[in-house]
């Protein structure tokens, strides 16, 4: 039998497995259907204005940050790449969110990530280091992660991931704002909000790739952002998650934001001309009742500025 024939037959035989199973929400989701989550989708080329408008649609930063609170803004600063290469969250998006948290009288705004490349190079070349220094506010703390602050956490609702070391500040902050950049990823197809949470965990992170979708959903039961802002100002379509070639970058000038992390990821997936169920972590989280994944069931608020 030729290889092509073998593959064809194999696909036929396993069709039952590979076809999407009917998506069922977890039983624990409650008898009452959850109200449709609000999600903002805003486009505009002036990023500070874009960020402000997006937050306004959701009720403004004051809805999430009360005076004196400890706030974490968690961008993706994973790679030694510059802002144009679309591998890290755009520095202006991060900066505007941090400024807004300061204006809402946050007591402290912590910004950190656990980069894949050398940490100092990532913080510098992503432009985030300079962008935050330009704010000139002592409450803003861009720090490298302190190994002492990883705590072993039991993930009691986890189906695949039962325990892992998680960064204390990410768990104890009064307000945790997840700010991923939307981009291509070889294994998970896209990396979005749920995947961005891998930046607050310690240990041998590569080990999570073995059942990545479920593991990320399990992680999402304990790392729970108050707000997810997905940076799609420019998106990386191929050779992710770090890219490097500008040919793979598409300018979108778009931000998505929601209090529902699954909804944010699901809607962001459509920016890549994919259906939300193409992303295993979205499906797994939806099935566990962590959020909504069907755009039809979301209250999408659109605006362009």
């Amino acid at each position: 039998m030729k290889r092509r024939g073998f593959l064809k037959r194999l696909l036929l035989c396993t069709a039952g497995i590979s076809l999407p199973a009917p998506l069922l929400r977890a039983a624990g989701a409650g008898a009452q259907p959850a109200p449709a989550p609000d999600i903002a989708r805003v486009t505009g080329a002036d990023y500070p204005v874009l960020v402000k408008e997006t937050l306004d649609l959701l009720g403004g930063m004051k809805r999430f940050v009360s005076p004196g609170q400890r706030v974490v803004v968690k961008p993706n600063i994973g790679w030694d790449r510059n802002p144009d290469q679309a591998a890290n969250t755009h520095p202006l998006v991060v900066r505007t969110l941090v400024e807004m948290a300061c204006e809402a009288d946050a007591g402290e705004v912590m910004v950190f990530d656990f980069p894949c490349n050398e940490k100092r190079r990532c913080y510098n070349n992503s432009g985030i280091s300079d962008a935050l220094a330009a704010i000139g506010d002592k409450r803003v703390k861009l720090t490298h992660m302190d190994k002492r602050k990883f705590k072993p956490i039991t993930i009691s609702d986890g189906k695949s991931l039962k325990a892992w070391d998680i960064y204390e500040d990410a768990l104890t902050a009064d307000c945790y704002i997840n700010v991923p950049v939307a981009k291509h990823h070889g294994l998970s197809r896209l990396t979005l909000g749920l995947k961005n949470s891998m930046g607050v965990i310690g240990g041998r992170r590569g080990g999570l790739h073995h059942n990545l979708g479920q593991n990320l959903a399990d992680l999402a039961t304990v790392v729970r952002p108050s707000l997810t802002v997905i940076d799609a100002t420019r998106i990386l379509l191929d050779n992710g998650p770090q890219g490097g070639s500008l040919d793979d970058v598409r300018k979108m000038d778009t931000l998505l934001a929601s209090t529902d992390p699954v909804a944010a990821d699901a809607l962001a997936t459509t920016l890549f001309d994919l259906d939300p169920d193409a992303i295993a972590s979205t499906v797994a989280a939806y099935q566990m009742g962590l959020g909504e994944m069907q755009p039809d069931n979301m209250n999408i608020m659109e605006r362009s500025v």
């Binding site: 990823h185 294994l187 790739h209 998650p241 490097g244």
Partner: peptide, 23 residues
């Protein structure tokens, strides 16, 4: 077991590690 951590980290703009699906 699925795992392409090497591909994820490969830094060349056109990745020097790629993958093909196999049964």
């Amino acid at each position: 077991i699925p795992c392409i951590v090497c591909e994820e980290h490969c830094p060349t703009p056109d990745k020097a590690i790629r993958f093909r699906a196999a049964a």
